[in-house]
Amino acid sequence: MKVPTAILTLIIGIIITLASLWVSQNNGLMPIAAAAEATEIDRLFAAMMAIATGLFLLVQGALIYSLFAFRRQANDETDAIPVHGNVSLEIVWTAVPAMLVLWLGIYSFDVYQSIDSVGTMGSNHMAHQHGQPTEMQMVTAQTDGSRAQVPGNSLWQRKPKPGAASADVDPLVIKVEGLQYAWLFTYPDTGIIAGELHLPNNRPVTLDINARDVIHAFWVPEFRLKQDAVPGQETHLNFQPSREGTYSVICAELCGAYHGAMKTRAIVHSEADYQAWVDSQVVASQESRTLAMKPLNPIPPSPLQAQAIAHHLPINLEPLGAPGRHETLASVADRQEH
């Protein structure tokens, strides 16, 4: 019995669609999402995975099928049935991808606007800077530090709504400086300078990012956010941690020989733990003011000094472990001697 082509095509189409949807939801390729923005980006990724898997299966399936079905018989010197084209088919495979990328473009635009990570799109950053209340912050305030994910569509409300009055949570502004090969985080509200990024959960954060020597890039994979640190310019990153835990801060832009070792930790605390950390740091920084002030010295530190500063501050380059750490410092010292 021969199955009609139309039915066969339909069945294959359904199978490909189901497989694509399954892959998009169950690929497990992304790390844990630890910021409200990450959830949005993961949803976008899932959508793209669905489309990509569908197209992948379609093209690879057709090629593999051809490989077996259309093999030339030995001694068959004749040509295949000549088909020069098929206008309706060509219109379909021009129009469908065009609509897909149009949709994907609009969707990406939406996500980008809603995460508003660089803070100029919806003037959100400006609003934060001027301490204007936003509804998003109201939502945040109402979540009482619980782990509940911020609903995706509520991210739209981050756009400032003039006149909206509510209990305001100012974004926590942190100055981030990249230097060969360490990150320095300055908390202007308390004067803390740290080598690790400590954040309270569920509170909006604004990073003002700069670089001292060469271009670096601030990246926390669990936040899905990355921003270059450019010497001579200030860049920004706005986000809101949504999950307590310890994550890696990674330099993503090649910055020299020890680029791979330029890592530190981002620790998302509960509000209480964060406050405890702030209190402990304020005391500590008073005790070791000389050391803490060093990075603010107008003379940039050598890589060795930077390492030392970073080392002395509570940095733990977790993935490297202690031996790697020693090796790094030893080889820097080596190089300096030569």
Binding site: A62, S66, L67, F70, R72, D79, A80, V83
Partner: peptide
């Protein structure tokens, strides 16, 4: 893909 499809490969 359409070129390969139905050919004598």
């Amino acid at each position: 893909v359409a070129t390969v499809w139905g050919g004598k490969l």
